[in-house]
Nucleic acid binder design. Sequence first.
DNA 1: CATACGGACT
DNA 2: AGTCCGTATG
Lengths: 390, 390
Amino acid sequence: MLEAKLAEASILKKLLDAIKELVNDANFECNEEGINLQAMDNSHVALVAVKLQQTGFRKYRCDRPMPLGVNIASLTKVLKCAKDDDLCTLKAADEADVLNLVYEAKNSDRIAEYDLKLMDIDSDQLAIPDTEYDAYIKFPANEFSRIVRDLASLGESVRIDVSKEGVRFASDGEAANGSVLLKGQGPITGVTNRPKSSEEEDEDAEGSGVKKEDAAGAKEKPKVEEISEDDEEDEKPKVKKEKKTKVKKEKADGDVDMDGEDDEKEYEDEGEEEVDNEDSDEEGDGKKRKKKESSSGKSPKKPRTVNGQAKGKGKGKSKEDDGEDSEILIQMNSHVSLTFSLKYLVNFSKSASLTNKVELYMSNDVPLLVSYDFGPGYIRYYLAPKIGDD
Amino acid sequence: MLEAKLAEASILKKLLDAIKELVNDANFECNEEGINLQAMDNSHVALVAVKLQQTGFRKYRCDRPMPLGVNIASLTKVLKCAKDDDLCTLKAADEADVLNLVYEAKNSDRIAEYDLKLMDIDSDQLAIPDTEYDAYIKFPANEFSRIVRDLASLGESVRIDVSKEGVRFASDGEAANGSVLLKGQGPITGVTNRPKSSEEEDEDAEGSGVKKEDAAGAKEKPKVEEISEDDEEDEKPKVKKEKKTKVKKEKADGDVDMDGEDDEKEYEDEGEEEVDNEDSDEEGDGKKRKKKESSSGKSPKKPRTVNGQAKGKGKGKSKEDDGEDSEILIQMNSHVSLTFSLKYLVNFSKSASLTNKVELYMSNDVPLLVSYDFGPGYIRYYLAPKIGDD
DNA sequence: CATACGGACT
DNA sequence: AGTCCGTATG
């Protein structure tokens, strides 16, 4: 049986808001690691993958793997009956045909309980190719929302170019053409980030040995996702580190002070690694920053980077993230230029309500990965590029 | 070519919001003085005239007069892509068929650029008759918004009466009749205000200290007649300070001719003083005046008229400006009673987002002038009165 | 016909 | 800033 207690019903509410337009029905695949959902959008153009890690729950128990087929619209309705800060417990008996949701007000003077009917859904889980990405951008989620919404008002599609200049989003429309350039802070370095698999997340979080299958290898080889069926393509998506280095690099991006405002919060040299992740810190050209980054760049054993901490269980610092909110981190191995349908990107950008950062992973001719990591898990979208130049 | 940098994109956004429902397409007439737009509303009942003075820009360059025909809806779309506090630069090459808009985030980590397609628009600029107004009211813009919205919910039109009693806005409706009386602070004096031309505005801005108070004794009787060019010589139309009246009057700035009559009155600026600023573009081109006044113009802030300070009302309202916000200044030469369509007034009142004061200029049987002066320019609406008492 | 997005008003 | 209404899209 399943019993999973989430500290905030709002997390589920936002999650459902984020996918309800994309997906009609989907299986919540529950196992001891947590809950996964994977589905193609209605037109089979985009893929959405959600993970709620076991560690993200206040309490989590799942004796055996079980797929819970739910109608997303129905679940959305039921979730609307929860207050944002209610404790939310999902329960399902083995072989149950209903999912039981219990909402407890924080002060526990109110308990609401709903039973959502389940359905059998063919889980045609699509395999997510394990990809090496040539470009990685992490920036404020609302910035992304803004850009795609703005451009969507002009045209149908957007071309995203990642170059040394930065990231450019450009769209041509009837009445006007538009382009937005994000410059990023600091030098553009090679890609050192990659989507972490759920196991990695777990490990990052607590290093618990709970992981299953490829536990061991997981960290080393970045696998994108656990695909069910045919993930025989074993090339792990480790990012290409080949051309990683960019010429100019001096300070880590954390040091940059865009606004010119004096940051009194100077980086404490220890404790907090704020941003790192750039493998190439070797420069040490006497910039004011102290080296915090000691890892050897080439093979990030554990690409720990702030990312990890931020999202990970080490919740300790969720707030500090804000300090990072306005940062734009761009990593690139080679020039990438892809065109996507704005309609989908606008849809994806709804997930901004879950977290304040979004990560884009791109390589030419490969689906774009848009990833939002939030406290208890992540939601990732894959969208194939348009071909030709329509 | 044109290159005009505005410190806040929000100014343009608000301006467009203010006119987009009234106008579909319009020419932005750019010349070395600044940018003018003049258009009839879609039903040819109201006229809107906008001026953005060259001094209102962070940077301004316009080598030769050029009309930029834009579709207001398209420009509105493009402007929505700007953040309110973005620096906004308008650029157009000579004979260009696109208007280029560049938005720079204050911290410059984001640069967005849009090209808006231009169109050829027949500029049937209507002449705005030079009018002597018998009544002038300056009061909080949101007060005006409130009054017209309230009355619009009752009836179709409003009768505005200016008498010694104050200004009364009255509307009769099916279910109820309503009337709002504004009393104004201080005694009601003769009209000393008139719509100022942009040059005058400039002067006010800087010469403010310079004004001599009620220069002439004419104060009591605003004469409407002297339209001379001499306006600049003495003080700018300063309004009376304290209760005293100032009288200044000269020509109104534009000549509108709602009816289509054209009386072009040319105001040549006499060599020294500038006063012109007619919206009438046709001639506008011909008269290119150079700004002589530029000197102290560096702070083109809102030309605060003396009024503000003068009135010592004990308003202790909130912000500093508010001190003036609640002031109601009424000047009148003779009783004025006019009826207008509320629908239009409600529309005009949207400009309240641009500034916190509105000025009404009225004379019997003549179009009402509703003027909003904001930092870099002004927006004025002319609306013919209803006749009979429908 | 229903859903979602954008704009307006309080 | 939030809510509601209207418009547009699927």
